[in-house]
């Protein structure tokens, strides 16, 4: 077992982990932080997405020991105090979910994605990768393609993100 420290949603959480433990399992099984969800556990669905030092990552495909010292933000820690993050409000306003299982991952992914877009990063949907892209619906869909929604709430997820982006 190795001693590591994670700061999860602003709270410092020291713990000892087996090196094989993923960040997702450390959060859910060891620290009782259940906002990130285990969908496929193979990096194919995006339900486990969290922000590590502000960047969106799949917590199922990174080992907890590798994230020693990191600031981890889950969907539960996105808002200020007890308030909801504007994206979470927008998801409610736009009916951007049905069962909700993918939603924490969608929210963390969208926060990270808007930050990337705000810094002018291109995407596969950007016609000229040298230019600063405009966040069209096509751009939002492409940049969110790593988050699957089995309920098929994609149209409303796009409209919720579009509202916060603009």
């Amino acid at each position: 077992m190795l001693d590591i420290t994670l700061t999860v949603d602003g709270v410092t959480r020291p713990l000892a982990v087996d090196p094989r433990t993923t960040l997702l399992d450390a959060l859910r099984e060891r620290l009782d932080v259940t906002a990130p969800k285990k969908g496929c556990d193979h990096g194919q669905c995006g339900a486990c997405t969290v922000l590590v030092d502000g960047r969106r990552v799949l917590s199922c495909l990174t080992l907890a020991v590798q994230q020693d010292g990191a600031q981890v933000t889950t969907a539960a820690g996105l808002g200020e105090g007890d308030g909801l993050h504007p994206l979470a409000e927008a998801f409610l306003d736009h009916d951007a979910l049905q069962c909700g299982y993918c939603t924490p991952g969608q929210l963390c992914s969208a926060v990270g994605m808007l930050d990337e877009a705000g810094r002018g990063h291109a995407s596969h949907a950007t016609a000229d990768v040298a230019a600063v892209p405009t966040l069209t619906d096509e751009e939002i869909r492409e940049r969110m393609s790593g988050n699957l929604c089995r309920c098929g709430a994609y149209a409303n997820i796009v409209s919720a993100i579009r509202e916060v982006a603009s």
Binding site: G46, H124, G146
Partner: peptide, 22 residues
């Protein structure tokens, strides 16, 4: 992005935003 667009495009065609961050 400016001088090697084929590389930027190939990278952006792969995986997802979360995976490319890692």
């Amino acid at each position: 992005r400016a001088s090697y667009p084929v590389l930027a495009e190939a990278l952006l065609a792969g995986a997802s935003g979360q995976l490319r961050n890692v």
